[in-house]
């Protein structure tokens, strides 16, 4: 595998640095769940299911969110995935997602009710966490859970002083890249809810680079938000 990411200003899959992959959206994929959505971005494909709002077991006033992330054994490129649930990375993300969703869902409108979120990663080609957040947002809308705002996520990377939007799996593997700089934004108000990044080596992220990455990722989120809004308009209006 080549370390090169940009050839003549184009990436391996022919995108320009600030292009998103083609995404496709589907909701209502599982009928037994209250809400379900399938979000795919390039070859990354994530499904999310919502169970609830349903009666909580201990009759507490404020409900809680449970979050379960599993990836299919065949999701990764190359080898079969050995651990499909509960490894450190996915447990960390589950906690992050729980916190994010707690800040978005309006629990005072659904007292004594719990919400279960199930995410399954079907194909992993980079930016899985971002796709998962988008899928969960869609599934929550499909379930009719009261929310403050959309939560939209997008990732970007940094390679040889160029910021690239929506990193793929191979791009994330390359050295000298801030492999995945993830950000989640409230759709309508534009507030940033979550920032996280992974890097190789001990290279620190400078302030200018952070600003550049933030600006690019927010622009990406804006595009994804537009796509999701258009989709919802089309599907739910009658």
């Amino acid at each position: 595998m080549s370390d090169e990411i940009l050839f003549y200003g184009l990436r391996q899959d022919g995108r320009r640095p600030s292009d998103l992959r083609h995404s496709s959206i589907n909701v209502g994929v599982i009928h037994s769940a209250d809400g379900s959505a399938c979000f795919s971005q390039g070859n990354t494909k994530v499904m999310a299911f919502i169970q609830g709002p349903k009666q909580n077991r201990f009759e507490k006033e404020k409900g809680k969110i449970s979050c379960f992330l599993t990836s299919a054994r065949f999701s990764t490129t190359g080898e079969r995935k050995k651990v499909i649930r509960g490894d450190k990375k996915s447990s960390e993300f589950e906690e992050f997602l729980k916190g994010m969703m707690e800040s978005v869902i309006l629990f005072e409108n659904i007292p004594h009710s719990d919400i279960d979120i199930y995410i399954s990663v079907l194909q992993d080609d980079g930016s899985v966490e971002s796709a998962a957040i988008n899928a969960v947002t869609l599934a929550l809308i499909d379930a009719g859970v009261p929310m403050k705002d959309f939560l939209i996520s997008c990732s970007c990377g940094y390679y040889n002083s160029t910021a690239i939007l929506d990193v793929t799996y191979t791009e994330g593997l390359s050295y000298s890249v801030i492999s995945e700089f993830r950000i989640a934004v409230m759709g309508a108000s534009g507030l940033v809810a979550y920032v996280n990044y992974e890097q190789f080596g001990s290279s620190k992220l400078s302030l200018e680079v952070t600003k550049e990455l933030m600006a690019l990722a927010i622009e990406g989120c804006r595009q994804v938000h537009f796509l999701i809004r258009e989709f919802c308009m089309k599907t739910y209006s009658y």
């Binding site: 709002p53 409108n109 929310m147 739910y236």
Partner: peptide, 24 residues
Amino acid sequence: IVANQIGYPAIYNKLVCVNPVRGR
């Protein structure tokens, strides 16, 4: 006044509501 779920807005006297299209 901001919607918190997907639906069609309606107004009753001075109360603004959103009639949901999805949910329990």
